[in-house]
């Protein structure tokens, strides 16, 4: 009983040390306290007539923003990981150099430019934003999946084959678990960039945390800009810390401690 309680306390301390957790708490607090920030904004920007953005609640904006990022990243993950697996199979090996080149070139495309290119094709609103975010996120995920699977040591794969692992077993039990930290890092990269690009997407009419920023910029209302910017920055940093946390968890004991 006693050891139970002690280990529980230890676990809670470990949890409390996670900045991701506190940032999430802070983010939620800021989202719900923002409507009460009127006096603060009035003090910061005395000349502003309406200090707090009210066209949509910040909770609504954050939810819409998260939705844009989540849908696009998830789709990109499915496509990117799938493609990464395909080009590392025997049947898809022919396409591996091409996939590498596309992933490398794709990552040099500025995300804003990708967003700008989808607008003429898909029009305004959430659809082009999601498509652009997804398109952009695919590249780092493909690159990460390929790197991850290729990082599996040749003797490991050889031993697995020699012991009678079927190709499917090798993929699911050896390659994907070993590639997971790499894929997670690629996903983290993509999600963080997407959080930023989704904000810019509101210039093209997608509802997101960028909406107050864009409106503030065009109406010369710095208070709106600051409100949107603070929340979207917090969202990005919190998401990043949460991914860091996941990466720590996914690392296997054997890889964590040297020797």
């Amino acid at each position: 009983m006693r050891t139970d309680r002690r280990s529980l306390i230890a676990a809670m301390i470990r949890l409390a040390r996670r900045p991701g957790l506190w940032l999430m708490v802070l983010l939620i607090a800021v989202i719900f306290l923002m409507p009460a920030a009127g006096p603060l904004m009035r003090w910061l920007f005395p000349g502003v007539p309406r200090p707090v953005y009210t066209r949509a609640s910040f909770f609504e904006l954050t939810l819409a923003h998260a939705e844009l990022v989540a849908i696009s990243s998830l789709a990109a993950a499915v496509i990117g990981i799938g493609f990464g697996i395909f080009v590392t199979r025997e049947s898809g090996r022919e396409f591996a150099p091409m996939a590498g080149a596309i992933a490398a070139t794709g990552q040099t495309f500025p995300p804003v430019a990708v967003l700008a290119l989808t607008i003429p094709v898909l029009g305004y609103g959430a659809a082009p934003a999601i498509a652009a975010l997804c398109l952009y996120a695919i590249f780092p995920i493909i690159a990460a999946t390929i790197t991850g699977i290729e990082s599996v040591p040749a003797p490991t794969r050889d031993a697995a084959m020699g012991m009678g692992f079927a190709p499917r077993d090798i993929l699911w039990r050896i390659e994907l678990p070993l590639a997971f930290p790499f894929i997670l890092a690629g996903l983290r990269n993509a999600v963080i960039i997407n959080i930023g690009t989704a904000a810019i997407g509101s210039a093209a009419g997608a509802l997101s945390l960028g909406s107050p920023i864009i409106e503030g910029l065009s109406a010369s209302n710095p208070a709106y800009v600051l409100e949107g910017a603070v929340i979207v920055a917090l969202l990005a940093v919190a998401a990043d810390r949460c991914f860091a946390w996941l990466e720590d968890l996914s690392r296997h004991g054997g890889l964590e401690q040297p020797g």
Binding site: G210, I213, P222, G228, V232, D240
Partner: peptide, 21 residues
């Protein structure tokens, strides 16, 4: 620097407006 890097560009631009002015 890592935290700085994760802040979306539009947010950093926006946050800089007030102190700069």
């Amino acid at each position: 620097l890592g935290i700085l890097q994760t802040i979306p560009s539009i947010a950093l631009f926006g946050v800089l407006i007030a102190p700069m002015s």
